[in-house]
Amino acid sequence: MKKEWPLWEIFIRSKSGLNHKHVGSLHATDAEMALENARDLYTRRNEGVSIWVVESKHITASDPDDSDPLFEPARDKVYRHPTFYTVPDNVSHM
């Protein structure tokens, strides 16, 4: 019986200076293969300049059931947002 290859999460930096962004996942037997598969799957239309791969099992996710205690308290604290400043027009990526 065929064993499934492990799952990897792929992060691509679309150009220098920007953050790596999660773009999807794929199967590979090792990190090198994950990089090559990511190159072929996610950068073939010139989407990136850098790739990170992380095996999915190494990612710890928050539990959706905990979202109230985790996120609710921040919702009514509008003063934590920097929205009271004006951002100059020529500042990009804010």
Partner: peptide
């Protein structure tokens, strides 16, 4: 043999 390989070879 794998979808990822399919795309790699055709690339």
């Amino acid at each position: 043999p794998e979808m990822e390989l399919d795309i790699a070879l055709t690339n």
